[in-house]
Design a protein around this nucleic acid. Structure first.
Length: 269
DNA sequence: GCGACAG
DNA sequence: ATCTTGTCGC
C-alpha cells in the first residue's frame, strides 16, 4: 500500500485533474458573439415602437472580498447598477467559508459558487433587478485555457458576461511589458484600445486605458454571449474611474460588508 | 531548469 | 486577494 501523498493530498495539485476536465466541458458551451436582445445605447434608455424598453437596463457587478485575519472567510457581492446613471439599484451579499485554495488559472472554482448562489436566489424570486449582463472581477477568455471566471459564471448562469482583469494573466506570449510598449510606442494617435493578439495570432481581448488620464490599462475579455467589441463598448460606458463602476462598487461594498460582519456577533460561520 | 501565474 | 498613511493635483 502507498500511504504517501500520492493518494491523500489536499494541496493544489489534487484538485487540478478534476478542474481541468470541468473547464474543458464547460468551455464547449461558451458563446463569443453577441447573444442578447437589448441594445447598448450610450444616450440612455430607449423604447421601441410599442413603448417597451429596448436598451440595456441593469448591469450586475460581482466580486469576492477577504480579510487578512481569516483568509478562508469570504464575502461575495452582486451589485446591480442602472446602466446609464451608474447608480446602484440593488445589492446582495453572501458570507461563506472557502474550502479550496486559489490556484492560478482556476479562480472560478473558488469564487464562482458564491456568486452563482446569489444569482440563483434572485432568479427564484423573479427579482426585478436580476442583471441582464455581468461584469466580473477576473478574466473571460483571456485565460490559459480560454475559460476564465467570467466564462465560468456566464455559462453556468446563462447571463452575458464580461471579464475585467486589473492585471494581465500572461497567456500566448502576451506580457505586461509588451502591452506597455505598445501603449507608448504608438504615435500621437489616441490609442486607448490595444488588441491583445498572442503569438499564435489569436485575439484574446483588449488592453484598454479606460479613462482619459489613466496610465495603467484594464484587460477586457468576453466571458459569454458577447463579442470583444461589444464588451469594450459596454465597459467604456461604465468607467467613471479606471475600474468600471459595477466592479468597483461590488469591490467597495463587499469589503465594507465583510468588515461589519466580522466585527459583529456572527463569528460562528 | 527557471520564471510566470486573474483574484 | 489583504493592509495603510500620506500626499499630489484639480
Amino acid at each position: 500500500m502507498d500511504f504517501s501523498s500520492k493518494n491523500i493530498s489536499f494541496d493544489k495539485d489534487s484538485y487540478q485533474q478534476e478542474w481541468i476536465e470541468i473547464q474543458d466541458n464547460l468551455k464547449k458551451k461558451v458563446v463569443l458573439e453577441d447573444d442578447f436582445t437589448w441594445k447598448i445605447s450610450p444616450q440612455g434608455s430607449c423604447l421601441d415602437q410599442a413603448g417597451n424598453v429596448e436598451s440595456l437596463q441593469y448591469i450586475g457587478g460581482v466580486d469576492v472580498s477577504f480579510v487578512k485575519e481569516d483568509p478562508s472567510l469570504a464575502c461575495g457581492a452582486l451589485v446591480v447598477l442602472n446602466a446609464y446613471t451608474l447608480n446602484v439599484v440593488h445589492e446582495e451579499f453572501e458570507v461563506v467559508r472557502l474550502k479550496v485554495p486559489y490556484v492560478p488559472g482556476f479562480l472560478a472554482f473558488r469564487e464562482a459558487p458564491i456568486i452563482l448562489g446569489i444569482l440563483d436566489k434572485m432568479k427564484q424570486k423573479a427579482h426585478p433587478f436580476y442583471p441582464q449582463l455581468l461584469m466580473v472581477d477576473g478574466n473571460g477568455i483571456l485565460h490559459p485555457k480560454g475559460f476564465g471566471l467570467a466564462c465560468h459564471l456566464g455559462v453556468l448562469s446563462n447571463i452575458p458576461a464580461i471579464g475585467i482583469g486589473k492585471n494581465l494573466h500572461h497567456v500566448d506570449g502576451l506580457t505586461r511589458s509588451g502591452v506597455m510598449q505598445f501603449l507608448q510606442g504608438g504615435e500621437s494617435m489616441a490609442k486607448d484600445v490595444i488588441p491583445l493578439v498572442g503569438k499564435s495570432g489569436q485575439t484574446w481581448g483588449a488592453a484598454v486605458l479606460s479613462t482619459p488620464d489613466s496610465l495603467k490599462p484594464i484587460y477586457i475579455s468576453p466571458g459569454h454571449r458577447i463579442s470583444i467589441d461589444s464588451s469594450i463598448r459596454v465597459v467604456k460606458l461604465c468607467c467613471k474611474f479606471r475600474v468600471p463602476e459595477p466592479i468597483r462598487q461590488a469591490d467597495i461594498r463587499s469589503r465594507i460588508f465583510l468588515q461589519k460582519f466580522k466585527g459583529s456577533e456572527n463569528l460562528i460561520i
